Amino acid sequence: MSHNAIYTDLSGYYDLMCADIDYPAQSQCVQRIHQLFGNGGKRHLDLACGTGPHVRHFLDAGFQSSGLDINQPMLDLAQQRCPEASFSQQDMCAFSATQSLDLITCFLYSIHYSGSIERLRACIASVHAALADGGVFCFNAVDKSQIDNSSFVSHSVRQQDATFWFSTGWFYAGEGEQQRLRLRIERTDAQGTQLWKDEHPMVAVTFGQLLELLEPYFEVQLLELDYQRLVPWNGTSGNALVVAVKR
């Protein structure tokens, strides 16, 4: 399958693939961050929103929440989940907003879908232009220098008469500005087993490079990727929660 095929042809499986994600904890954590660092406004946009689970939690918390994604089948599902929200099919590296925003999020490492340093720079510029003064851009990221190519995260889930196994893992060749997200889906039922594999090209950066891209536009805090408590990044872990407040 070509890259992104899993999110178009298999968009109906996306929620199963993410069944182990604690969406309430992630959403509540970022809401606390916005209370601490933000301007108090409620206008929210979720980049690469997928089927809209984070948007749903922000709406329920009283935000005027919206989402964008590059894949229309995902947005169709998001609109069903969040009929009161607005969704648009846009590239997060070249998007425009119809109003100034107070909070822009990008969960699940989706910032890496920008694919290259130049496109990541364009994404950051688009976010800065869309935010109101004191607005917050919050996302999680991985440092390319800390990637373990042999590490995968897996889980299984049962749906109707089939069992699904999902595995994801990062791969970085050791040089350059591109890494890959490897995805594997296995579906087993009474008729046998089907297997899908996919690799998505993702931008590879160190946290130092990421800070260099953000700091012309934002005051930046790096936090540990811990959605239960807010603590500063320890300087060594390969995952971080980035909090960027518009200058």
Rank of each mutant, 00 (worst) to 15 (best):
L183K: 00
L183G: 01
L183Q: 01
R184L: 14
R184D: 03
R184N: 11
R184V: 00
I185E: 04
E186H: 04
E186Y: 03
E186D: 10
R187L: 00
R187M: 03
R187S: 00
R187K: 09
R187P: 00
T188F: 01
T188Q: 03
D189N: 14
D189P: 06
A190T: 05
A190I: 08
Q191M: 12
Q191H: 09
G192W: 06
G192N: 07
T193R: 10
T193G: 04
T193K: 13
Q194A: 15
L195G: 06
L195H: 08
W196S: 07
W196K: 08
K197G: 11
K197W: 02
K197I: 09
D198A: 14
D198W: 08
D198Y: 05
D198M: 05
H200Y: 10
H200Q: 15
H200P: 02
P201R: 00
P201A: 08
V203L: 04
A204P: 03
A204L: 12
T206L: 01
T206H: 00
F207I: 08
F207V: 05
G208E: 15
G208Y: 06
Q209G: 12
Q209Y: 08
L210H: 01
L211R: 00
L211E: 12
E212R: 07
E212T: 14
L213C: 13
L213W: 11
L214Q: 15
L214C: 12
E215Q: 13
P216Q: 14
P216M: 13
Y217V: 11
F218Y: 15
F218M: 14
F218Q: 10
E219G: 09
V220P: 05
V220H: 05
V220Y: 10
V220W: 05
Q221Y: 11
Q221D: 04
Q221W: 10
Q221N: 14
Q221L: 11
L222P: 01
L222V: 04
L222E: 02
L222H: 05
L222W: 01
E224L: 08
E224A: 15
E224H: 03
L225D: 07
L225S: 06
L225R: 08
L225P: 06
D226I: 01
Y227C: 03
Y227F: 15
Y227G: 03
Q228F: 02
Q228D: 13
R229C: 10
R229Y: 07
R229K: 09
R229H: 07
R229E: 10
L230D: 04
L230P: 03
L230I: 15
L230Q: 09
V231C: 13
V231Y: 07
P232L: 12
P232W: 06
P232H: 04
P232I: 11
P232S: 13
W233H: 12
N234A: 05
G235P: 02
S237P: 01
S237K: 00
N239K: 06
N239L: 01
N239A: 03
